[in-house]
Write a protein that binds this DNA or RNA. Structure first.
Length: 271
DNA sequence: AAAAGCCCCTGGATGC
DNA sequence: TGCATCCAGGGGCTTT
């Protein structure tokens, strides 16, 4: 579910409120993707220094380590002033003197992992190989084009892979390719410099727009204050198979790439 | 090295 | 309130 905009909206929704808090206790529900990696009581007494984001990971700096949080497909984080009794899908609570940060994740593809720091092998393993941050100045058209030239896979799958540029998931990959007028099946190495430049701008624009709208709420995404996002109402192609293209009226087509659905306009995205 | 498949898991929608 | 099937925002791991 959560792509860069949803993760960032979540971060913005609780980072300032939890910064400076002291951890009182940790409660675990059912297992998530990976074990926490430490005894829950080891976190008690630690201070929350801040919350950063890298790709779709949230990095919570603690006085004695680092907590890596990932929302997987169905996860959402919420900071409660007074948390209600945990439900069957509430699998992690970080109880602090400034509220309880709770991970709700029905599918349990999400994760909360403790590491001693970013150089801890546990953290490195998860963060190494991640591509450039799309909203960062280091993401620039020329380098993007050069990286794409190395890849034979389809441009949609290269965007999703996250090793060239991070944060673009299944919704925003389709949306960015539409905005750039590029067919999702086109081999990444066959993009022209002009196409790569358009796609670079499109990725930034689409993610930025989604951020402003609070992300996309397809089923269950909520930000840290329990509010839904509204980008899905703005989607040009995602989940619009058969509906008329908002630009040219041609019915939107769907196909599958690497077990994921892709949506595009056959006219606006000729190649 | 890169690419393609598989799998983790629950729940909602759809079809019979 | 039956049962089977398919699909869903991710991504690490194994196999080609």
């Amino acid at each position: 579910m959560p792509e860069l905009p949803e993760v960032e909206v979540t971060r913005l929704g609780f980072a300032d409120r939890i910064a400076g808090a002291e951890v009182r206790a940790v409660r675990l529900g059912q297992p998530l993707r990976w074990p926490l990696g430490c005894e829950p009581r080891q976190l008690a007494g630690q201070r929350v220094l801040g919350v950063r984001r890298r790709g779709k990971y949230l990095l919570m700096d603690l006085s004695g380590g680092l907590l890596l949080l990932h929302l997987g497909m169905s996860g959402s984080l919420r900071l409660h002033d007074a948390a209600p009794a945990p439900g069957k899908h509430d699998h992690f609570d970080l109880e602090t003197d400034r509220g309880t940060l709770r991970l709700h994740d029905p599918r349990r593809f999400g994760a909360v992992v403790f590491a001693l720091g970013e150089e801890d092998p546990v953290a490195r393993k998860l963060l190494q190989g991640l591509g450039v941050e799309p909203l960062d100045i280091f993401f620039e058209p020329e380098g993007f084009w050069r990286a794409l030239r190395e890849r034979r896979a389809s441009i949609k799958q290269v965007l999703l892979a996250g090793d060239v540029v991070v944060g673009v998931g299944n919704i925003y990959a389709s949306e960015a390719l539409f905005a750039a007028g590029i067919r999702p099946t086109r081999s990444a190495r066959r993009l022209t410099r002009a196409q790569a430049t358009r796609l670079h701008a499109a990725v930034r624009q689409v993610l930025q727009r989604a951020l402003e709208l609070g992300g996309s709420t397809l089923r269950d995404f909520r930000n840290a204050n329990g509010e839904s996002g509204y980008f899905q109402l703005d989607a040009m192609v995602y989940d619009r198979e058969g509906q008329p293209c908002r630009v040219c009226g041609t019915p939107i087509k769907a196909l599958r790439q690497g077990q994921r659905s892709t949506f595009f306009c056959p006219v606006c995205q000729p190649a």
